[in-house]
């Protein structure tokens, strides 16, 4: 955000979300994860490690909470007394899984607390983390209600990728060093590649305007890249053996992800999803905090 941009668009900055917000969106990437399909195999997590140059920190540091799993599969046992006697730490029945990556909140709590503006909202609606700008204050992590931001307490380059393993590193993104916060980027390198490809092929939406997602208007920028739905996939989506993860542009009403949000009556900008039809699934994590996440989980919310 340059000063020129700020001065020219001052009126827009003053306006609230109900008038389309201060952003001119190019895309609004969103996700839907079907928990009925998730088998908790952790393949998404492994794919994320491979795609995003995540360091393997080792058991000792993992126990201290230094792990860098951008996509982690959380486990819950909803009926603790079900099944056999506990032979091990983990019981056999009644597990449910929630793959959690950065929720890319529309009203992200991590963004306003960054002292150096290393995390901010991009025109793609992504919650960006600029590594070379980050000074490691960790305010963002402390302010994230989901605990989905990970801090590099150590430099892992030599321990995690001893030669020749460094050859497997993805050149499309940085290897983060000590003192830098990192988190799921919705595979921004793949988004970038798809957008570059669209622009090179002159696939551009010339006109701007306003696009409604649910009942929420979003201003869109003219000249944005026209990326087809499913033109690219995120690493976790690509790897999921049961296709539980859907990813796409929520400003495109025909994208798979928009259809899922609509058909399950999950809406942006709400603090709870009131569904007329009790058969419908779909909720967002801790949405009562008004973070407005763009990752939606398909599962009936039930009392235990």
């Amino acid at each position: 955000m340059s000063l020129r941009n700020l001065l020219e668009n001052w009126g827009d900055y003053r306006k609230g979300r109900e008038q389309g917000g201060h952003h001119k969106y190019e895309h609004m990437w969103g996700m839907a994860i079907d928990l009925n399909l998730c088998i908790g195999c952790n393949a998404c997590s492994v794919a994320c490690y491979a795609e995003n140059n995540l360091a393997v920190v080792g058991k000792e540091k993992f126990e201290k909470g230094h792990a860098l799993h951008w996509m982690r599969v959380e486990r819950y046992w909803d009926e603790p007394n079900l099944g056999e006697a506990r032979v091990s730490e983990y019981q056999v029945h009644g597990a449910s899984f929630v793959p959690t990556n950065c929720q890319n909140c529309n009203a992200a709590t991590c963004e306003p607390v960054c002292p150096v503006a290393a995390t901010y909202h991009t025109p793609d609606g992504l919650n960006a983390q600029v590594y070379n700008r980050c000074i490691g204050s960790r305010y963002c992590s402390n302010n994230c209600p989901y605990r989905l931001r990970y801090f590099n307490f150590w430099s892992y380059y030599e321990s995690s990728w001893p030669a020749p393993l460094h050859m497997q590193l993805n050149p499309d993104l940085t290897v983060r060093d000590k003192g830098v916060m990192e988190k799921c980027t919705f595979c921004v390198q793949r988004i970038r590649a798809a957008k570059d490809k669209a622009k090179m092929e002159n696939r551009v939406v010339a006109e701007g305007g306003v696009v409604n997602v649910g009942d929420q208007p979003f201003k869109v920028a003219p000249g944005r890249a026209k990326v087809q739905d499913m033109e690219f996939q995120t690493a976790c989506q690509q790897t999921c053996p049961t296709s539980a993860i859907s990813f796409g542009d929520m400003l495109n009403p025909d994208s798979q992800v928009s259809k899922l949000w609509r058909s399950h009556q999950v809406e942006l900008g709400k603090t709870s999803q009131k569904k007329p039809n009790p058969e419908l699934r779909g909720y967002r994590l801790l949405e009562e905090l008004n973070t407005d996440p763009r990752v939606m989980f398909l599962e009936r919310v039930r009392e235990v």
Binding site: M1, R4, N5, L126, A128, N132, D172, V188, Q189, R192
Partner: peptide, 15 residues
């Protein structure tokens, strides 16, 4: 980028 109206977003160039 400023003179030629190129993109001005951090994540366009930083990865």
């Amino acid at each position: 980028h400023e003179a030629n109206h190129g993109p001005f977003d951090c994540w366009q160039c930083h990865k």
